[in-house]
Nucleic acid binder design. Sequence first.
DNA 1: CTGAAAGCGCTTACAG
DNA 2: CTGAAAGCGCTTACAG
Lengths: 349, 349
Amino acid sequence: MARVTLQTIAEQVGVSRMTVSNAFSRPDQLSAELRTKILDAAEALGYAGPDPAARALVSGRTGVVGMVLTNSPRDAFTDDVAVGFVRAVAGSLADAGYSLVLLHSSSHDGVDPARNVAMDGAIMYSCTPRTQAVTALRERRLPIVTVEGAAIDGAPRVDIDNHSGAYAAAKHLIDLGHSDIALIVAMVDADDEPPSDEALAPAPVTTAERLRGWMRATDEAGIVPRIVGTPGRFVDDVLRARISTMLEDPPTAVLAFSDLAALEVMEQAKQRGIDVPGRLSIVGFDDSPLSRRVSPALTTVRQDIDAKGEAAASMLLALLRDESAPAMPPLPTELVVRDSTGPVSPMRA
Amino acid sequence: MARVTLQTIAEQVGVSRMTVSNAFSRPDQLSAELRTKILDAAEALGYAGPDPAARALVSGRTGVVGMVLTNSPRDAFTDDVAVGFVRAVAGSLADAGYSLVLLHSSSHDGVDPARNVAMDGAIMYSCTPRTQAVTALRERRLPIVTVEGAAIDGAPRVDIDNHSGAYAAAKHLIDLGHSDIALIVAMVDADDEPPSDEALAPAPVTTAERLRGWMRATDEAGIVPRIVGTPGRFVDDVLRARISTMLEDPPTAVLAFSDLAALEVMEQAKQRGIDVPGRLSIVGFDDSPLSRRVSPALTTVRQDIDAKGEAAASMLLALLRDESAPAMPPLPTELVVRDSTGPVSPMRA
DNA sequence: CTGAAAGCGCTTACAG
DNA sequence: CTGAAAGCGCTTACAG
């Protein structure tokens, strides 16, 4: 049986292919009864509606928006914050009739999704600007929105106020009397040496800004913090090992670049019998769902992930409507004090 | 400036459009030097490669696979297990050069992604068969794979052995001496009355199978469990309220349909000062990442979510290669005993 | 309200 | 190794 197309139906009903097309795509262009007749014939023939690929070719619109995640979706989906972001974006896009396609940036057998997948625009989440995916998207001249990555020229950005949040977190510890503070950082291969601004430059904005925020507070207080870092983006074996080393002679407080990193410190501390917050205070970042559930509940810096996702989606949607996306100030962050921080213990003070 | 197409480059280089197409899509069809020359010209003209939509129309392949999630992606992404599944699927597909597009099943303004998005096949996760999305996909005659939903005829399925896992969990409690056991269920609007098999029929396989597994064990032991249910799919206000009512006269043990539901019971028990596991034993389902982190660590039934995702992806990939997908036995589940279960307290025994 | 014309940008056979 | 022919299935103007 040959494939059923608009033409098949047109012949069946005795109208032109155009009219059948209108029946599906522009209902106001024909009488209700003719439309019903056409739709009935289509259903009888097992026609599922206009072919999306053909429609995309001629209309130039696919109804699909891409999302490039840092590394692969596989990595990103181990991170609560990234998941929450994808969730908010997918939800907002769905409300506007768009679907979200997850793009991995590493090419397999020369298959680069950012180059080969049909889409109307894309959101870059925490990407470095020299990614293959970014290059492809730009060459295709697709509208893009950057979130928490380095700036891509011409592309509007959504960002959160990492600096202020980090500053508030560090200030909180300093106000509690802490002066022996370790900073747990990612994407910086440092073990106990504060990275130079130069060393920080290639690190994605998020990491660098959090570190700078912490250090503004410690600088102001005349404190030189310890640095415990990993070149990776997440909690990895390098970081685990360095945290372990750090805990052999523990500081009185720790500021971590994410809640997951903070929880790693908390777990290792537990194993060593180091009381939190009695002997060690810990502050995370992100206010991920986990942070509330662990005990002691984690002091952290909240960001509104839903708002971030909605902002990114609505910016891209504006671009897709050929409007210019409004510039946006960084979304606010807020210190949430829970039970993992306390005054420095008298013994150590 | 007119859009750059294969034709533009062909004229520039002085070859036919076909040869330019081959340079991009079939490198073995022309000499290396000619190919380089063509690619260089393309780059100079700012050509980003063959248009995906046009390519999809003529080749009949898009490189995109759809995923229909129960409700919207928004709902699904609040669930650790669903997220893990999406992660594994996206990863496996990426390895094969495919990208994953998230499809919401509710149509907005008549925009139904399952009908309008160009794709090569789809995975249905925990869907009821009468979903609009399923209908659309079937009418389009796209290859589909069903995961943990009701069977869709002709579509291969991936499933886990919910029944055995649930049975083992219930048996574990019974062996500990429990006889006053509450079953926390979703998609069943029951408050203390065991649902009939008939009432269970429309519930997705997962829920029904877990309930049946538990009840096989309680039946064998001659125990009539309490039923605490919600018509919803997740932990919702109805369920929270019914759990609260249940805890006014608590059973000695609880079996929950998911870890999230188990944690809800645990939290409410904490608030009421009911000791876990001293006074109340709790078993979850799924072995989500959370279950290990809470305290007391949750006894639960483990399923291998990565394996489930990989199985679904490789089945669909086989279908896309026009191979028939091999039938698969349900993936095994395994009881993981941690700290939230213990012997029934003597007071109550 | 309906239709004839033109074409979206590409690839699949096939012939040379 | 290269190219002329045919066409994928649809929609966008436009004319009636």
